[in-house]
Nucleic acid binder design. Structure first.
Length: 655
DNA sequence: TAGAGATTAGTTTTT
DNA sequence: CTAATCTCTA
């Protein structure tokens, strides 16, 4: 670990203290006199970045180098790409206030390019385009290799897609990787500058990098910079996003002097949990052989429970959590319910709410998907970049300002004729002709507000500008008038929460409004201030739970077709599903509970299900099967018994 | 332009 | 069978 001068690959098994290792290495580098501003640590998620910063902070404080923390660059690939593009906007041919389009905007753009009203079709094309970008396939190459009709359509849209984005002076998520890479490849001067900036690069979750990310890494590291890659081939679960284990296999070939270190001791789970996880993953072909071990004791058997249907499953899991909380003096925060797809959360939400148990959903819809937040973000994007037509369309309609479909259609005609944005077209003589005075005044006033705020965006604190935006646009007043009281209150609150958070963020990191706007596009959830404090059961997709651990874990919905997912089985990619199961199992510290449903409601119909093949692949001697009640009476009786037990426990507790 | 009713689609993971 | 989106009418 103290090897600092060359390329290093750390194969870190689940629960082997991966984050700790990276944080320790960062602290060690600082200790050796490396300039903290030249240490670049790249993670996969915002959450991981935050965690790593916290760990590094603790270690550095111990070394009396707390000052170094704020200089460290610890961020996601995408945030790093954004930073590079911002600093090199000119060389990259970008407007400094460029927008980062959200997936909804992009769906609309793609739908128009493929001339379809069918959302599923548009999304499929959008997905194809993204996959091509991440695989570094150009539009021309995509057109040449597109096999099916659908791919042909997507490839033709791809050719115009980048032009459309350029017209809006906008980029998409993938561009935050691809464009910095193109810039570093094309411009030796810029590349040299950034390579000099890096004294040491660390990459977390290396197994989840895609070809574009790997190339970016190589362009950054060059021949001189030492780096540390940390990963685990058994936890590669982002193949669908273009991540490829080839990057892991390729590393020793690209860097012959690569040192490889394996971490095989698990500090998290009991022997039984690990034995089952090892048995499961033994069914996959291996890139690097590795066997996790633990000295945390045998532990209790893994419970496997077939359930009648998904509703019963939710109820019984929640009952069990309530029971265990008292029996084991555990906190709700010690429990996690993990599932394959977001929609599976619903039954559990309902069950938890019925019991009055606090829960928190991660990986679900974030506050950035709420319409009122999108409205505010649209204003911010427009302030940063007035060519952002999607943002214009959203902001101009919230609040309603007497400008309707007809007016906007006329404005769009003028803009198209003049080859300029909706914003710019507002001030053209043609609009004076095409649009009645009243509507035009509204538009001009709207644009005037945006202009004023833009003018001040770099000089004044973000908090004040945000307050002014809410007041002068009439947005806050509109929320209050239009909606019935309760809804309005909730929305006003979430808007306030959001603007307060932004203002604080701006102050803490000394960012102006434009910089904050770009950052917001990459953030999926507000920094967890209450999430740490609230004692709540965690509901999460397995993907979103990677890197986390819980004393008690329930993995639910373990049926053929769900895990492994139907599509994955059809595509003959069961290995990635198995890794997903492996990740789920290895989140658990003490107790692990697996369940599957005999029938499940889907589209109003009951569908029969088979237990997942993965249950059969576990270490059978460590499992304990529980049978579901057979009849409705038994189920009712059990429910009543459960409720009674819960009531008596509650009574005991309240004494 | 906004709200209420009709209609239709839902099948995986996310920066 | 929901829930979200769309369409029509006031």
């Amino acid at each position: 670990m103290r090897y600092c001068d060359g390329p290093l690959l750390v194969l870190a098994g689940a629960g082997s203290g991966k984050t700790r290792v990276i944080a320790a290495k960062i602290a060690h580098l600082v200790d050796r006199g490396v300039d903290p501003a030249q240490i670049i640590a790249i993670t996969f998620t915002n959450k991981a970045a935050r965690e790593m910063r916290e760990r590094a902070q603790t270690l550095l404080a111990r070394q009396d180098r707390a000052d170094a923390v704020s200089k460290l660059v610890i961020c996601t690939f995408h945030a790093f790409g954004l930073m590079l593009l911002r600093r090199e906007a000119k060389a990259a041919g970008l407007h400094p206030g460029f927008s980062i389009l959200d997936p909804g905007d992009l769906e609309g753009i793609v739908a128009e390019l493929v001339a379809t009203a069918d959302r599923a079709r548009a999304r499929a094309a959008q997905w194809r385009i993204s996959a091509w970008k991440n695989a570094l396939v150009s539009p021309a190459a995509a057109l040449a290799q597109a096999a099916s009709d659908d791919e042909q359509v997507a490839a033709r849209a791809y050719a115009h897609y980048d032009d459309t984005l350029a017209a809006y002076r906008a980029v998409d998520f993938d561009d935050l990787i691809v464009r910095p890479l193109a810039l570093l490849d094309a411009d030796a001067e810029v590349a040299g500058r950034w390579q000099d900036r890096c004294a040491h690069v660390l990459v977390d979750e290396y197994q989840d990098t895609n070809p574009a990310q790997y190339r970016l890494l190589r362009a950054l590291v060059g021949a001189r910079t030492p780096f540390t890659a940390v990963g685990d081939d058994d936890q590669a679960i982002y193949g669908w996003r273009g991540a490829t284990l080839d990057n892991l296999a390729q590393l020793p070939r690209d860097y012959p002097q690569l040192k490889v270190v394996k971490l095989e001791q698990n500090y998290r789970s009991t022997v039984r949990i690990l034995r089952s996880a090892n048995a499961l993953i033994g069914n996959n072909r291996k890139l690097y052989a590795k066997k996790l071990w633990s000295d945390l004791g045998h532990g209790e058997p893994i419970r496997v429970a077939p359930m009648g249907d998904d509703e019963t499953e939710a109820q019984r899991v929640v009952d069990r959590i309530a029971g265990m909380k008292f029996e084991r003096r555990a906190a709700y925060g010690d429990f996690a319910i993990l599932y394959r797809g977001n929609h599976q959360a619903q039954a559990f939400e309902t069950a938890l709410r019925a019991r009055g148990i606090a829960y928190e959903i991660s990986g679900g819809q974030s506050i950035f998907e709420r319409s009122e937040i999108k409205d505010i973000v649209a204003y911010l994007r427009l302030i940063a970049n007035d060519d952002d037509d999607p943002a214009f369309l959203r902001a101009v309609a919230a609040p309603r300002r007497g400008v309707g479909r007809t007016t906007l259609a006329r404005l769009a005609d003028v803009a198209a004729q003049r080859h300029e944005s909706l914003f710019a077209a507002t001030f053209s003589p043609e609009v004076a002709q095409a649009v009645p005075a009243r509507q035009r005044d509204s538009l001009v006033e709207f644009c005037g507000l945006v202009n004023d705020l833009r003018y001040r965006a770099e000089r004044e604190p973000a908090g004040r500008l945000l307050d002014e935006l809410l007041a002068r646009s009439g947005y806050e007043a509109w929320l209050v008038d239009t909606l019935d009281k309760r809804d309005a209150q909730a929305r006003t609150k979430s808007v306030r929460e959001f603007t307060d958070w932004l203002a604080r963020k701006g102050e803490a990191d000394a960012r102006n409004l434009v910089e904050l706007t770009q950052m917001v596009a990459l953030v999926t959830m507000l920094d967890g201030r209450d999430s740490d404090r609230v004692d709540a059961v965690r509901l999460s997709t397995i993907h979103a739970a990677k890197g986390l651990e819980f004393p008690h874990v329930f993995v639910v919905g373990l049926e053929e077709g769900i895990l492994p997912h139907r599509e994955a089985v059809a595509a003959d990619d069961v290995e990635e599903e198995r890794r997903l199961m492996y990740v789920a199992l290895t989140r658990a510290r003490q107790s692990l509970h697996l369940s599957w449903c005999r029938t499940r409601r889907r589209a109003g119909e009951r569908v029969a299900g088979q237990p997942s093949r993965f249950i059969g692949e576990l270490a059978q001697e460590d499992l304990r099967y529980a049978d579901a009640p057979r009849t409705a009476e038994e189920a009712t009786a059990e429910k009543a018994a459960g409720a009674a037990r819960l009531a008596s426990l509650r009574a005991m507790l309240s004494q």
